[in-house]
Simulated assay, not measured.
Amino acid sequence: MRFAAAAVACALAMPAWGQERSAAQGSAAVLRALDKVNGHTMDAEVAIGASSEMFGLMVTVSDCRFPKENPTGDAFAFLTVRDPGDGATHFQGWMVASSPALNALDHNRYDVWVMRCSSS
């Protein structure tokens, strides 16, 4: 019981991630897709709220953020990846540029990951 109370007290005393690091919002996300069958890759810059067809997938970007102190660093974006034919969702969630395997698209033929955010 004492241990649980001490753990909660320590967790509450530590600053939250959002308070410790400030993030800026980009106007677009730069994405890379890989066709695992033939090894071809393609890059696309997709504006926030827009979609792009990358090989056989429709990728929608809802948000893209990056550390203010390091614009080329650890970007993260909220993506939705669907099959354009039947509308089946293959992925929906946050992807982190520096750790694409942390929350990855699970597709038998294609990979999609975030490279960085764009502010232009």
Rank of each mutant, 00 (worst) to 15 (best):
F66L: 01
A97Q: 05
S62Y: 03
G87L: 08
T80E: 11
A88H: 09
F66A: 04
E53Q: 15
A75F: 01
F55C: 10
P67D: 11
W94R: 14
R65M: 13
G93T: 01
D74F: 01
P100M: 11
L102E: 00
A101D: 13
G85I: 12
G87M: 05
F76C: 09
P71R: 13
V61H: 02
G56S: 06
G87H: 04
G85V: 12
N108Q: 07
A88I: 03
R109P: 00
P71Y: 02
M95F: 06
P67A: 09
T60C: 00
G56Q: 02
V96T: 02
F55D: 06
V61C: 04
K68I: 10
T60R: 13
F78H: 09
L102F: 03
N70Q: 03
R82L: 12
D83W: 00
A75M: 02
A104H: 10
F91I: 06
G85Y: 07
G85K: 15
V61N: 06
P100C: 13
V59F: 13
A88K: 13
C64M: 02
K68R: 06
C64P: 00
M58S: 15
F66H: 03
S52Y: 15
T60M: 12
D63K: 12
R109L: 05
R65T: 03
T80W: 09
N103Y: 06
A75Y: 01
D74M: 07
Q92M: 12
P67C: 03
